[in-house]
Amino acid sequence: MMAQAALIRRAAPVLACIGLLAVWQLAALALKNDSFPTAIEAIRAVPDILGDKESLINILASLRRMAIGFGVAVLVSIPLGLLMGRSRGVAAFFNPLLMVIYPVPKAALMPIIMLWLGVGDITKTLVIFLGVSLPVIYHSFEGAKAVEEKMLWSGAAMGLLPAQRLVRIVLPAALPEILTGCRTGLVLALITMITSEMIARQSGAGNILFNALDMGQYDTVFAMIIIVGAMGICLDAIFEKVRARLVRWSEPQFDMPLSFS
């Protein structure tokens, strides 16, 4: 029974993907539209892209910007969010700023940033940075705010100074919430990566996609969508592995306490 359940759980995502592709295939066949290739045609174009050196360089350049934007955003946002969560003054200062930036689509800032910093890597990385920062700050803030006061008092009684409490109690206690923010941030990094390359065409995965669109190579367009989607799934899976390791102690499988006083 257990093995069967595990098998279903493992097979489910694969079945979902196959189902999606099947619907796509049928829809494309039914519509018979030139700009809507079938799933099989799109999949056939994937090896062409991945086999092309130029395309690979483009995709790797995208991933590099994304990694830098994401990494820097996480490094800046977590400390900021934690400080905001534990200090009313810091929160009162940054909250209005963030409230202004939050609803603005980060891609909408691209043209302005491009005027200042050009169309190169810095602009695109900065946009990714902005996209990732806000959810990470927000979740770090919420996580830090929710840390039990008595837990901090316990630390204080052991002799931990305020800065040590922030690093050694607030950070680990808020980690599950922080990582939820990072996961959202990772998806946003991918989205802003593509949109930034759509606006500032020069290199990258988005560049291949929109160039193909301009030239009417629709199988390449859809193949790129598949590649970007696959990248998203892989990154998320890797992140989830790391996350599960880091916050094993808070996972629901530990929710059943032993019955013993």
């Binding site: 039990e148 008595k150 837990m151 316990s154 009684a157 109690i169 680990p172 206690a173």
Partner: peptide, 14 residues
């Protein structure tokens, strides 16, 4: 002075 709280206040990651 060592506190023991009703809420336990253990470090859940330890």
């Amino acid at each position: 002075r060592g506190p023991v709280f009703q809420e336990f206040a253990l470090f859940p990651w330890k």
